[in-house]
C-alpha cells in the first residue's frame, strides 16, 4: 500500500502524540493504583502506618458463623483469610448479605481490630447458576 506524503506526515504526527499521551496515561494510572481505593481489605488496614480517622470502606468475606444479631444491631467478622476485623452495624442488611459471602462496610475504624459501619453493601461474585446445581455442588462438597 502506498501512502501519500501528507498521510505519512499525519501518521508520524499521530504516533508522536500517541506516544506522549500513552506515557501520561501510564503515570496517571500508576498513581491511581496507589490513591483510588474503593475499599480496603483487612490486611490492607493492618499494614497502614496511620489509622484513618475519616470514613473508609472495608471489604472482604463475612466469616462463617461469626454473625451475631440482636434486633437490628449486628456484629460480625470480615476476613480476607490473612487478617480479621470485627464490624458493628445498626440498620437493615441488604438481601444478599450472608455468611460466607462478600460484603463492603462503610464507616470508621475505631481501632485496628474494630470497625463501626454506617452502611453495608453486599457484593456478589461472577457465578450464576440455578438452585439445583448449587445444591448439588454443596452436597458434593460435604461428601469430600
Amino acid at each position: 500500500m502506498t501512502l501519500s506524503k501528507s498521510t505519512k506526515i499525519r501518521l508520524r504526527f499521530f504516533s508522536i502524540i500517541f506516544t506522549i499521551v500513552s506515557i501520561i496515561i501510564f503515570f496517571v494510572y500508576d498513581n491511581l493504583q496507589k490513591n483510588i481505593v474503593y475499599f480496603y481489605s483487612p490486611e490492607d488496614l493492618k499494614n497502614l502506618s496511620v489509622t484513618p480517622v475519616n470514613k473508609i470502606r472495608l471489604g472482604g468475606l463475612v466469616k462463617q458463623n461469626s454473625l451475631k444479631a440482636n434486633a437490628n444491631s449486628y456484629v460480625f467478622i470480615i476476613t480476607d483469610f490473612k487478617n480479621e476485623i470485627f464490624v458493628e452495624y445498626n440498620g437493615l442488611l441488604p438481601n444478599l448479605f450472608a455468611e460466607g459471602k462478600s460484603a463492603v462496610a462503610e464507616g470508621v475504624l475505631r481501632d485496628k481490630k474494630y470497625f463501626v459501619a454506617s452502611s453495608i453493601l453486599a457484593k456478589h461474585d461472577e457465578n450464576y447458576m440455578p438452585p439445583e446445581i448449587s445444591n448439588t455442588l454443596k452436597k458434593n462438597e460435604l461428601k469430600k
Binding site: Q33, I36, V37, Y38, F39, Y40, S41, G59, V104, L121, K123, H124, D125, E126, N127, Y128, M129, P130, I133
Partner: peptide, 22 residues
C-alpha cells in the same frame, strides 16, 4: 481495582462462570 461490581463472568481465556441454561 477493588470494586463493588463483580468481575466478568464471560472471558476469552476461561470457561464462563454462568450456567449454560442462563
Amino acid at each position: 481495582w477493588n470494586t463493588l461490581h463483580q468481575p466478568a463472568s464471560i472471558t476469552l481465556t476461561a470457561a464462563p462462570t454462568i450456567h449454560s441454561s442462563m
